[in-house]
Design a protein around this nucleic acid. Sequence first.
DNA 1: ACAAAGCACTTTGTATTTCAAAGTAAATAT
DNA 2: ATATTTACTTTGAAATACAAAGTGCTTTGT
Lengths: 100, 100
Amino acid sequence: MQEHLTIRLDKVIHQKARLGIMSILMVMEETEFNYLKERLKLSDGNLSTHLSTLEKEKYIKIKKKFVKKKPKTLCHLTEKGRQAFLEYMNNLEQIIKSMR
Amino acid sequence: MQEHLTIRLDKVIHQKARLGIMSILMVMEETEFNYLKERLKLSDGNLSTHLSTLEKEKYIKIKKKFVKKKPKTLCHLTEKGRQAFLEYMNNLEQIIKSMR
DNA sequence: ACAAAGCACTTTGTATTTCAAAGTAAATAT
DNA sequence: ATATTTACTTTGAAATACAAAGTGCTTTGT
């Protein structure tokens, strides 16, 4: 019987910018807006909306602080986000494995 | 010095449906429209446009035949498509490796 | 023989997503 | 006091995704 290769990859994570954000948050715990922007070479607006998307999905939590009277946006993964990312990676590895 | 993790993944391949199509074509050489449609659970229209996208990019070649007086659409990877897919997979593996 | 249904797609229109230009608000420099 | 910079958010235009509707042929039923 033919199995269905219906590629099961979380839509929210399967996007270059958001994959990058999640990747960084997996290893960085507490990360600044500007760090992500610089590291991923995203425009302000682009990063802002992607962070909102991830926040809406409850994959990340966004904290706003003031440091030296300037706003500072900090992001970190939620447990849900961590799980979603791990599952995404596992799915991806399965796909890659099935190719080899 | 901080490296830039600008995720470098071919936009044409980095999409669930097209990733599925390419994956199948990597192992199947000559594949029918309806096979892809069934295997990937895509609607006719959706598959049709994704195949056109891949064809426009010269990642696949589409042949049209008649079999028992019915149209039959066959697809196969081009060498360019194969290379693009391999590079996509390598990039993906790098990203995964960098996560572990 | 003729209409109705089926098959194998493609085209079209709508909905969603992406992304950067423009906007906001506060701080700092001139 | 005004201009510039910093740190974002909002908005609107463009691209993308997808399914409903359309096309053109064939087969089936009556």
